[in-house]
């Protein structure tokens, strides 16, 4: 019960962090274009990533697929963090972006843990039984 509430709060925060950049990505905002240019990515690149982030947000909000959304956002944020470390750096605005990416990454880990029973290959990582197994 308590874990459920914590997980929901985490889900909403992640959705917020991912969601607030989508508008800028899809409208080719100059800041976004500039930042992705450092990674060698053009409009195709950031729109692809924006689409994946949108999918992750939707999955995070559907109770039966939360874990898949969390895994996806975990992957996207891992990529973002690598981008900051290797190419973008942490100066000014980029630092704030990196901070949010790290926060979303950590929260995704938390959600994956709390929702581990939704997917048996995750549940197995912690040795717990998934809900499907318990039924049969």
């Amino acid at each position: 019960m308590k874990n459920n509430i914590i997980s929901w709060i985490a889900q909403l925060i992640v959705v917020f962090i991912l969601g607030q950049t989508l508008f800028f990505k899809f409208t080719d905002a100059p800041e976004v274009a500039e930042m992705f240019a450092k990674l060698g990515m053009g409009p195709f690149g950031y729109k692809l990533i924006g689409s994946l982030e949108l999918v992750a947000c939707i999955l995070l909000l559907i109770p039966s697929s939360t874990i898949w959304g969390a895994i996806l956002s975990w992957g996207l944020m891992s990529g973002a963090i690598m981008g900051h470390i290797s190419k973008i750096g942490f100066e000014g605005n980029a630092g704030a972006m990196a901070g949010m990416a790290i926060a979303a990454w950590l929260l995704s880990c938390l959600i994956i843990f709390f929702r581990r029973n939704q997917a048996s290959f995750i549940a197995n990582m912690f040795g717990t039984k998934s809900s499907n197994e318990m039924q049969s």
Binding site: M41, G75, L76, S78, G79
Partner: peptide, 12 residues
């Protein structure tokens, strides 16, 4: 940088 899609998958 696109190769990092695979990097992330393998990290997982």
């Amino acid at each position: 940088f696109y190769f990092h899609f695979f990097t992330v998958a393998f990290l997982f």
